[in-house]
């Protein structure tokens, strides 16, 4: 497998860190070298957060240079756009279409133009998967599995470079047994519905 550079981005509290852990664990099960780095600290309080995940061989730093990411998994559309400069030419973006409006936008200190942001993603990224995570949360009965839902969608694109079995095993290692069924449903959600 070629080296993979993956960026997960979203809003503090959305579960990007667990998702990067699952990718790492699955990759290690496949015998790959893994280096990751993530936002920890103040930004986790509802700020913009990211994880850089590098898989493959001969890696030095855990950070990905702009224009070098094979895949961006955006937990929130504006955050996906914020990280587009890291995407390589022809790279893949898997993003939730459900916005999280920051307090700054609610009190008029900045603007959040959702339609423009979604259109920008469609215009700029050829290999784009927008996941209707609001609908998925309704169908799955939980918004807490957004991370596994997006991993499932990323898996389908092939850009993740991982196997479903390994991701499933990694999830089982890290998630309490009573949540396995829900997470497995989330993992398969987009492929079972042939979404989007």
């Amino acid at each position: 497998m070629q080296n993979k550079n993956i960026i997960l981005c979203g809003v503090g509290g959305q579960g990007t860190i667990l998702a990067s852990k699952l990718i790492s664990a699955a990759a290690m099960r496949m015998g790959l070298e893994v280096k990751t780095a993530e936002t920890i600290g103040m930004a986790q309080r509802g700020g913009s957060v990211f994880s850089h995940v590098r898989l493959g061989k001969g890696l030095h730093s855990p950070m990905i240079a702009p224009g070098k990411a094979d895949l961006i998994i955006g937990f929130e559309p504006a955050e996906a756009v914020r990280h587009l400069p890291w995407l390589k030419e022809g790279g893949t973006v898997v993003a939730s279409s459900a916005p999280i409006f920051p307090v700054s936008a609610m009190i008029g200190a900045s603007t959040y133009a959702l339609e423009e942001i979604l259109q920008h993603l469609r215009d700029q990224v050829k290999d784009l998967v927008l996941v209707d995570s609001e609908r998925a949360a309704g169908d799955l009965g939980s918004a807490k599995v957004l991370n596994v839902l997006l991993l499932g969608a990323a898996l389908r694109t092939g850009a993740l470079g991982l196997e479903e079995k390994e991701l499933r095993e990694a999830m089982r290692e890290r998630v309490p047994e009573k949540f396995w069924e829900l997470n497995e449903k989330a993992l398969m959600y987009t492929s079972e519905r042939n979404m989007p």
Partner: peptide, 18 residues
């Protein structure tokens, strides 16, 4: 030089009280 890509205004998202 990386070609300048079109921009779209993004909201600022600093950390906030939960």
């Amino acid at each position: 030089e990386r070609p300048a890509s079109p921009q779209v205004p993004l909201p600022v998202r600093p950390p906030v009280l939960c």
